[in-house]
Amino acid sequence: MSTVTPKIEFRGLSHRFELGAGDFAALDDVDLSIAEGEFVTVVGPSGCGKSTLMNAAAGLLTPTGGEVLVDGAAVHGPSPQRGVIFQQYALFPWMSVRKNVEFGLKIAGVGQAERRAKAQHFIDLVGLTDFADALPRTLSGGMKQRCAIARAYAVDPTVLLMDEPFGALDALTRVQLQDRLLDTWSRDRRTVMFITHDVDEAVYLANRVIVMAARPGRVHQVIDVGLPYPRSEEIRLSPEFAELRRQVWHAVYHQPTTLEGSP
């Protein structure tokens, strides 16, 4: 019987950061598989290695142990097939929204007419049509993040890696961008790994919630989210959502305390 290769696979992933008086285990022997087209959220207490896990998948960090595979191939450095979106927008301040979204396409050698058409498609998709020629300094935080999402999508990655992309936004804008992200994801079903510290966000977006434990960072619990898509305010207010939220909250904030080096 044939087996399906995971889109993203972490095999025995470990990473230690060197500190002045020694080193610190950010991740310890993490095994995790993410399927093609799956939307997975990763949540956990401070210091559990969420961002380290994502940076390893992005190829921005070389783990000290284990490996990350995408489509069965080991990750060695960044790739345009893995779009990365951070909490900080990292837009070029001197470029318009359009030029920011076109940038990756230009680097890839896409011709002017094609990259303009592609950029416009994703600018429209994230709702920035009227601001295509605006500079980042004139945009709100939510609009800047939408621009960053459009730029990541424009280079047509098969995987989106998102590190608390809505963490700095106000509550209303955050909810609006969650819905817009899910609407975009429902159209193309790219594989998404989304890091968050917000339990409600983790449940609302995901097929599965990966709960991490800290010191050292490891997978503590995996919780399946059986809520139907498209997600809505009605689902957010449902008893089923409340029960899943309770499960995730308990898994995150009622873990036994395990400090590295303690018995």
Rank of each mutant, 00 (worst) to 15 (best):
A168D: 14
M162N: 02
D170T: 05
G261I: 08
N207C: 01
E9W: 06
D28A: 13
R82E: 01
S238M: 10
F122R: 03
G20N: 13
V211S: 02
A74N: 08
T129R: 09
T158G: 15
L60M: 13
V97D: 09
S33N: 10
R218I: 02
R190S: 06
C147V: 15
V175A: 15
S238H: 10
D200N: 14
A202K: 03
A251N: 02
A134K: 14
P165W: 07
F92R: 09
P230E: 01
I149D: 02
L237S: 14
R231W: 05
R115Q: 10
V42I: 15
G142W: 07
A113T: 13
Y89S: 09
E240R: 12
E164I: 13
H121Q: 11
L105T: 06
S33M: 11
P256A: 09
V192S: 03
L125M: 11
H254T: 10
R246V: 06
R218S: 04
V43C: 05
R180N: 08
L60Y: 08
L60H: 10
S51H: 13
S186N: 06
Q178A: 03
V101L: 02
C147S: 14
M95W: 12
G104K: 04
F17H: 09
R82V: 04
H254M: 05
V155T: 15
L181F: 11
T138E: 13
A25S: 12
V75I: 06
S14F: 00
P157L: 05
V225A: 04
T62P: 07
A119K: 02
T41L: 00
K118Y: 01
I123D: 06
S186M: 12
S262M: 12
D29M: 00
K106Q: 14
A213P: 01
Y153F: 15
Q255S: 02
F131G: 05
G142F: 12
T158V: 10
L125K: 14
H220P: 00
F122G: 01
V42Y: 03
V225F: 11
Q247V: 00
Q87T: 04
P63C: 03
A251D: 06
A73I: 10
P239I: 11
L61R: 02
Q87P: 11
V4D: 15
H220A: 10
A171S: 13
G83H: 06
C48I: 03
P256L: 01
V248Y: 02
A242H: 15
Y89A: 11
G104F: 14
W94G: 04
D163E: 08
D133M: 05
A58K: 05
G49Y: 10
Q88R: 12
S46L: 11
G49M: 06
P263Y: 00
A206W: 01
V203W: 08
G37Y: 04
I210C: 07
L19T: 14
I149H: 08
M1H: 08
V209W: 03
L61N: 09
G142A: 05
E18V: 04
H15M: 05
M193A: 06
S51K: 07
R151H: 07
